[in-house]
Each structure stands twice: as C-alpha cells, then as structure tokens.
Design a binder for these strands. Structure first.
Lengths: 228, 228
DNA sequence: TGATTGTTTCGATCGTGATCGAACAATCAA
DNA sequence: TTGATTGTTCGATCACGATCGAAACAATCA
C-alpha cells in the first residue's frame, strides 16, 4: 500500500517463535543441521524444514549441504546485527522472556555474536582499542591504524595481509546488553579465535556464553586496560 | 535455547502489515493521529486503535494527547534505527513494493488543522512570532505578549478582549508535515480567519489544503519574515 | 444544550499460517 | 541388496490474532 521496502515480511519471518529460536541459536555462529535446529526451536523436523525453507528463501540464512546433512548458518553479519538490535529493543521494552534465566548475567558479561565477542568484554576491548588510537571511527566506517595492526601482531592475533573487498577488516556492532559498540569484522573474528586458541576463554556448549578462565580474565584486562 | 530477550515478540509486532505501515509512516519523524495512522495503514479506526495500543505497550511508539486527538510518534531513535536496519535487509531480499503518494506536497505546504493554519506556512508564522518576542513558550503553556497583542491588532487580527477560560488564547500544536509546532488556540483560529477574510488564501473544497494567492503569499512572507 | 468528530471497548467472524502425521527421497553403513 | 538415519513434501487440522460492526466514551463545536 505504501512505498519502500516491505519490512513486514522480514519482521513476520522473525516474529514466529520457532524461527526466532532458530535464528538466536545460529547467533552462536555455529552452523547447525536442520535436526539440531528443530530441537533448538522445540518443533518437529517437518516444521523445522518448513521454517528453514522460508528463512533461506528470504536470504536470512544460508545453507551448505554436506552428505545427508544440511548445515544452516546466518546469511551474513547484517542479519546478526539486526538480531542484536532487536534484542536491545526487546530488553528495553521489558519484553524479556517469561523468566529471566540464571544464565543472563553470564550472557551480559561475554558472549558470541555470530563470530565475534560481545557483552561487557567485547565493549571493553573495543573501548580500549579506540582509546589507545589502535582503532579509529570514521563515520560509519571503522579503521585499524598502523599502530593497531602492530599491537595485534605483537599480541599474536592473525590477520590476513591484504584487505578483503567483500568483508571489512573492522566493523562496529551494536551490543544489546550494553548499548555500546563492539568489534566485528575480520579483526573481531580473529580476536575471538585468539582468545579461544590461547585458552583465555572457552565456549559453553549449545549457548552463546563465553567463559574466561581466571588467568585469561586477568590477561584480558591487562591487555585491554581502559586507563592508559 | 530460551535465554536472552524475546525478539519474537517485537518482531511479530512489526510483522503485521498494518502495524508495519504505521511504523513506516512514523519513520518520517512526524507525529500522526490515530485516525491518520488508520488511513495510512488502510484499516478502520478500531483496528488502528488496537494496534497502537499494542505498539505503545511494547514501547515502540509514544503518544501525546492533544485535545481529542492522540499524536503518535516513534518512541526513540533506537526504534527508528531498527526499522532502518530492517529496511536494509528487506531491500536485499528483494522484498520491495512500489508505489508513490502524489497529492502530498500541497498538504505539506499549507493546510487547515481543525481551525488554524498548519504546514510550512503555519510553522513559519509560529517561528516568526516566537523569534520576535510576540509569543513566549512557558513549558507546556504558550503566552501572547503585550507586543504580540499589539502586533496582531495593528495587522487587523480580531481577538476577544477578555480571556476565555474554556479555550486558551494561544496553544502550540504539533505539525503533521514539519514535526514542529504551529499556533493553535483562539489566536490561531483568528489568524487563519484573517488570511481567508483578507483574500490572502483560500480553502480547497473537500480538502484540508489551503492555497495562497500570489499577492497573499508575498504579504505573508513580508509579515512573518524569519530574519528580524 | 445537542451535534459532530476522534478514539476506544466489546463481541463475533474469519483467514492465515504453524503444526504434525504420514509418505517419500536421499544418503550412509553394513 | 537391506535397513537406518536425515531431511523434505503433502495434506489436514487447528488455534491465534487481525479485522470490522455496533456502541460507548471523550472532547470539542455551534
């Protein structure tokens, strides 16, 4: 009836509880099979298949066939950002789930956002990099400075030598719990991998939660101090 | 699987076509009445009321009562940002719908708002009166100064000698097209009557549109100049 | 004061879409 | 080949929520 993009279609897609559960499960960044997603959503495989078909058709998820499995994942980081933004609105609207689970504090502290670190830890890392001039905001864009690249190199974070055209090196992503930015993009992914590889932190199975070990925690705070 | 905010609730809210139309209409930043939103969404006022109640309850829109109208607007910029992000996703999905609204420019320029002038002209008159100290904002209230009363008297606008208790002399009214205030109340009505009586402007039958004549237009701009 | 316009409440209807059972297709392991 | 696992298609069912008519309520107008 009106001009402009049809946001109702997208929103209605996300608006179904089963599909929303699937999408939130995929926010872990892990590719899941149709069956696993069915279990996550609490529906039968038939229903899951139906929903996944619609999500894929709308370009919200992408799939990869492998043997007799189909691995689904979020289509791109824009979708992840949208879901994060929506989480923020839902939080502030008081539309939390019936019961705020015991896991929630942990989620606020540190969690996976698609493929990078979010939560208080993610925000702190972002702020620290910014305060020390390793990261520079340029309007919508975000750039890693030469010093920043050196810093990450010294730390041991592996970054590709050449820029990728399709996926930016650095990108800011809005945090639903902190309402602040955290680091996304290739560097964000690399940073999370670094934390996991070095044993600073671990993933909690079937959840977006990231737990830092005692030593990892102190190293993290030493590395990403806020006061220079 | 069940932790975190309930995004399905928010998404389902936006996912209804009628509500999505309303929200997109509010994306202009303009506050609209429940009736206008009903027309925008292509539903009856009853349905509109139902939807607006739910949107307000969820904190997506805020409302401001003004007389027998209720002006709705987006609750905050976060909601706008969410809709923006969703539009982007919808665009990529190829979920667009094409159609344009033709008649609007005239309405935006100048029109009747019950009994006073609204639109760009109404906003300009309001701003001019305010800038020259003829009108003073006092919180929610609005007062005509002695100078202001003299100015209108010199111009030839007829105002009642004594204050009316039931209806205020001056009142600010939120503008449909400009999201700015314009002059309502007895003085607003008197001003519009003045324009019509003097032949500066005419009403268009069966419409809220007000058309200024060439001479009326120049006189209006001379009378309500913005630079002192 | 009654008349008019804007908004809401209530009740009933009705269509859309989620859901699952059952059958089918594809893959893997013997 | 056979049987087991995984995923999809089809059809039927069913519940939820959007919608509107009627009527009440609220605020102005005349």
């Amino acid at each position: 009836m009106k001009e402009g993009p049809n946001i109702a279609g997208i929103a209605a897609l996300i608006g179904d509880p089963a599909r929303a559960n699937m999408l939130q499960a995929l926010m872990t960044g892990v590719a899941l099979t149709a069956g696993e997603l069915a279990q996550e959503a609490g529906v039968t495989p038939q229903t899951s298949s139906f929903h996944l078909g619609r999500l894929a058709e709308a370009g919200l998820v992408s799939l990869r066939k492998q043997g007799r499995h189909k691995y689904y994942s979020l289509a791109n980081s824009d979708v992840a950002a949208l879901l994060e933004a929506m989480s923020g609105i839902a939080m502030r609207s008081g539309m939390t789930r019936v019961r705020t689970g015991p896991k929630e504090p942990e989620l606020r502290r540190s969690r996976v956002c698609y493929n990078h670190l979010a939560g208080e830890y993610g925000v702190q890392a972002y702020d620290s990099l910014l305060a020390r001039g390793f990261l520079v905001e340029d309007g919508e864009q975000l750039h890693l400075t030469g010093d920043g690249r050196g810093f990450l190199y010294e730390l041991g974070v592996v970054l590709p030598d050449k820029e990728n055209k399709r996926r930016p090196l650095c990108k800011s992503c809005l945090d639903w719990s902190a309402r602040r930015s955290h680091l996304a993009g290739i560097a964000g992914t690399a940073l999370l991998s670094f934390f996991l590889d070095q044993g600073w932190a671990k993933r909690v199975d079937g959840s977006r939660i990231i737990t830092f070990s005692r030593e990892g925690d102190s190293r993290f705070h030493a590395t990403f101090s806020l006061q220079d």
